[in-house]
């Protein structure tokens, strides 16, 4: 399983890449593998205010559907619309081309409470 060291993680298998006050969010390699072939994705609206732990996106395989929770509170400022047309990108490139959305976050403390790569690895 690929678990890049420069990212933060959640117990619900999202990854977060922090850049200033901006957090890019996706699902981990482990998650995409468990979900199997992704066939459909629903992303949040840009501008939406979200609270940490709130379900904001949905990822669907043929036989299941998964809520994706935002790891931080704030405002949705970007979504990866290319995966709406090509959901398989999330399977193929979960950390790059297959990211889900971008949040401008309010609270630095929430970021601090995220897991590091080592802790996430222990979890799975």
């Amino acid at each position: 399983m690929d678990i890049p060291g420069n990212l933060k993680y959640t117990k619900t298998h999202e990854w977060v890449k922090i850049d200033g006050s901006i957090a890019k969010v996706g699902i981990t390699d482990f998650a995409q593998h468990e979900i199997t072939d992704i066939v459909h994705i629903e992303l949040p609206e840009i501008g939406k205010q979200v609270k940490k732990g709130q379900p904001v996106a949905i990822i669907e395989s043929v036989k299941s559907a998964f809520d994706i929770y935002t790891p931080v509170s704030g405002k949705i400022v970007g979504t990866n619309d290319s995966i709406l047309e090509s959901p398989e990108n999330v399977n193929e490139s979960p950390y790059e081309g297959g990211y889900l959305f971008v949040v401008e976050f309010d609270d630095e403390k929430e970021v601090e409470s995220l897991l590091g790569a080592g802790d996430y690895k222990k979890l799975i």
Partner: peptide, 10 residues
């Protein structure tokens, strides 16, 4: 198809 909309999954 598009079954993840349906009650037996969701």
């Amino acid at each position: 198809t598009l079954q993840s909309r349906e009650q037996h999954i969701r």
